[in-house]
Design a protein around this nucleic acid. Structure first.
Lengths: 218, 218
DNA sequence: CCGCGGGTCAACCAAAAGGTTGATACCGGT
DNA sequence: ACCGGTATCAACCTTTTGGTTGACCCGCGG
C-alpha cells in the first residue's frame, strides 16, 4: 500500500516545519505539499489534482493570519472546488472553543485535533482521516459530550445581537435606539445574558462571550 | 568556535519539533534541551548548569497552556534562579500586543520574535541574542518606534496593566485589590485611559484597546 | 532648582448600570 | 387549551461608574 499523502496548511513556518519533521518520522505518511493559507491550499490541491497526484488528507489550521481562514477553506474543499473526490480535512488548531469546533464540523471537517497533542495522537488522527473515519482529540470529544449532557446556556439570537452591540462599547440607551426597543428591554436582556454566562456586569459578559467565541473578534 | 546551545521552551510538541528541525538546519546552532513550560525550563537550566553544559540562548514561548508562563519564567531566569550568569532569553510567540511586549521586556527578555517569522529571521535573532545583542521582529520594532515618535495614544505601562484587568470583567474595586491601590486611584487611571483612547466608558475602552492591539485579544 | 508627568489618594456629585418585581404578548409543542 | 420560552415594557431601588477638583510624592530633564 502506498503512503498517505498529506497537505499541510498553516501560516506559521515553524509549525509547518514541525509537522513535516514529525510526520516524516512516521511510517506510511508523507508530506505532499504545504500552504500558508486557505487560498494557497485550494490552489495546491487543484495543482496536485491535475498532476494526478491527489492528496489523501489535508491537515488544516483554523486561524490564518492573513488570507482565507481554515473554516472557509474547508467548506470550499468539501464543495469540490479543488477537484473531486474532496479529500478529508483534519483540523489541527490551538483552540477548542465550541464555536470553532461546531463551525469546523459544519464545514465538513472529518476531525479536530489540538496542537498541543502528543505526536502519536496526531499520527493516529491522520491515519483515521485517511481511512475515512472521524478523529476527535480527547479534549474535544469530552467537550462535545459535556455539551450534550450539560447543554450550556444557549443565548437567543436577540441576545447575541445585543452582546455584539455591547462589545462595541455602546451604553444601554444607545443599544435601545439601535434596536428600536426601550432601555428597560435592554436591561432585561442583559440580566438574562448575565445569568446565562454566569457573570454580573457587561465587561465580564464581553470577556466570556469573546472567549467562548459567541461573538467574534478579528 | 563552538556551537550555540539553545533551550526550547514551548508547550506544543509540534512547535518544538518545528524549531528543532529548523535550528538544526542552521550552522552553528544546536538544540541542547526542551521544556514544555516555565517550571521545566528552570529545572532544565539548573540541570545543564550543574553538568557544566550551560545553554547560550533560551527560546521561550509566552503563553503556556499549563504551568509557569513565559514572562514569569523569564523573570526568574534573569534573577539567576537557574544559575549565573543567566542566559539571554529570546521570546518567540504568536501575538504582538503592547502588553505582551512590554511585560517581556520588563522581565528581562533580550528579544521578541513572532512565530510566523521566516526561518532566516529566527536564525538571526538567535545569533544576535547569543552575542548579547537585542533582537526584535520588524513588526515589534515598528510598534515600539511608533510608540516613541507618536504621541497619539501613549498609554503608560500602568494604564495598560489596568486595561488588561478591565478586559477580564473586573470592577473598579476588584482591580484596586489586585493592584494594591485604592479605588480612587483606579478611577483616576480610568479617566486618563478614556481620554487617551477617546472614549467615555470601560467597554468602549476595551473595544478600542483590542482593536489597536494595546491589549491581547482572545 | 523648578517644572512636568506619572502615580497615588480623597471627597463629592451626576449618570449609568445592575437587580427585582410584575405585566403583556406571541409562538410552538404537549 | 395550557405551558414554557422569548420579547417587550414599567417602576423602583441599590450599587457602580463616570467626571471634577484638588492634593501629595517622586524622578527626570532643562
Amino acid at each position: 500500500m502506498s503512503e498517505i499523502r498529506v497537505l499541510l496548511v498553516d501560516d506559521h513556518p515553524v509549525v509547518r516545519a514541525g509537522l513535516r519533521a514529525m510526520l516524516s518520522d512516521f511510517e506510511g505518511i508523507a508530506v505532499a505539499a504545504e500552504a500558508a493559507d486557505g487560498g494557497a491550499a485550494l490552489a495546491e490541491l487543484s495543482r496536485l489534482h491535475t498532476l494526478g497526484e491527489p492528496v489523501d488528507v489535508v491537515l488544516m489550521d483554523l486561524q490564518m493570519g492573513t488570507g482565507m481562514d481554515g473554516v472557509t477553506a474547508t467548506g470550499r474543499i468539501k464543495a469540490g472546488e479543488a477537484g473531486q473526490p474532496a479529500p478529508p480535512v483534519l483540523i489541527l488548531t490551538t483552540y477548542d472553543s465550541d464555536a470553532d469546533i461546531l463551525a469546523a464540523v459544519e464545514a465538513g471537517a472529518s476531525g479536530y485535533m489540538l496542537k498541543d497533542a502528543p505526536p502519536e495522537q496526531i499520527r493516529q488522527a491522520v491515519l483515521s482521516a485517511a481511512a475515512g473515519q472521524t478523529a476527535l482529540a480527547p479534549e474535544v470529544a469530552a467537550r462535545l459530550m459535556g455539551r450534550i449532557r450539560n447543554p450550556d446556556p444557549v443565548l437567543s439570537a436577540r441576545e447575541i445581537q445585543l452582546l455584539e452591540l455591547l462589545a462595541t462599547g455602546l451604553g444601554n440607551r444607545a443599544i435601545a435606539k439601535q434596536l428600536f426597543i426601550s432601555e428597560a428591554t435592554v436591561k432585561t436582556h442583559l440580566v438574562h445574558i448575565y445569568a446565562k454566562l454566569g457573570v454580573d456586569n457587561r465587561t465580564a459578559a464581553i470577556s466570556v462571550a469573546a472567549q467562548r467565541r459567541i461573538i467574534r473578534r478579528f
